[in-house]
Design a binder for these strands. Structure first.
Lengths: 146, 146
DNA sequence: TTTGATGTACTCATTAGAGTTACAACAAAG
DNA sequence: CTTTGTTGTAACTCTAATGAGTACATCAAA
């Protein structure tokens, strides 16, 4: 299975928030129109980002903004905020291997560490990419094609 | 979402094939009993591993075995064999960002490379782990607890 | 011809994701 | 204190992927 599109949508939304602030009030409708999904999907996503301390959302009056500087928000933070699965659980392990089989009895002991190692490699890479870098890349591209 | 348990089941199955050969004929029933799933699930999995050139399955008479030495089978090979998604598609990207928004217009250009970079990190780690290493780890553990 | 496997077509249940509608709760402006 | 424009959230549908299971035709070798 793939990692949910909530992740790429979340990055998209955060970029919008920083790049369009000033020009527009950042409402779920505006974000929904940029991403091209239903506004309710955006609102649900904003709730997850809020719970993770990444954004603030103004109820009533409307509008959302970052709660931290973009340099201190990494792709890993965003990933953890929007992915529902427990930390350290990228891989789905089959539950009840047969303890009577020498392999079934030991498969967890052999594999668990390896799987964690693979996941860590992915997370390290995510951690190395900040929202700030993506903002710079985006600004540069906007310059070229507008 | 998590990576399907087909992956860990596949690793389990391949370890069984090497460690139990000689002692038992490697049938889907035997493997199913060690993994604790339905034999049909195992047969379907073996078809995918066969298509990837990793195993040979004896129709009629029954029995399965590796087609390559365990040193030359990596976790990445197994992952590619059993995961249905296209190569390079760990992340699910939202399809139609709004080209009228400067962010929507550029989000693919900004993110695609980064996502590929993250996925490569994961795949490099998978590639570094061979079935042979896992076999050695398993033999060692079996020694200790039998 | 018997035997014990595999290969595969079905059906079914469960789960996660995503889309949509509807509406109560809310904050600020008038 | 009422209007206005939003957010927060419940309820529902739809789709796709996974996984479980049954049944049976196909097959190879004894």
């Amino acid at each position: 299975m793939q990692i949910s599109s909530r992740f790429t949508v979340a990055v998209h939304v955060l970029l919008c928030m920083e790049l369009l602030k000033g020009e527009h009030k950042i409402t779920s409708d505006l974000l929904a129109s940029s991403v091209a999904v239903n506004p309710v999907v955006i609102r649900r996503l904003l709730q997850q980002l809020k719970a993770a301390g990444i954004v603030r959302v103004a109820r009533g009056t409307g509008g959302a903004e970052l709660m931290k500087p973009a340099e201190s928000i990494t792709l890993l933070d965003i990933y953890h905020a929007v992915e529902c699965v427990e930390e350290g659980e990228l891989f789905h392990f089959h539950e009840n291997p047969n303890p009577l089989c020498p392999v079934g009895r030991n498969i967890h002991g052999v594999l668990d560490g390896r799987l964690a190692q693979i996941q860590r490699a992915m997370e390290r890479e995510m951690e190395s990419i900040t929202l700030q870098k993506l903002l710079e890349d985006t600004r540069e591209k906007i310059c070229c094609n507008s």
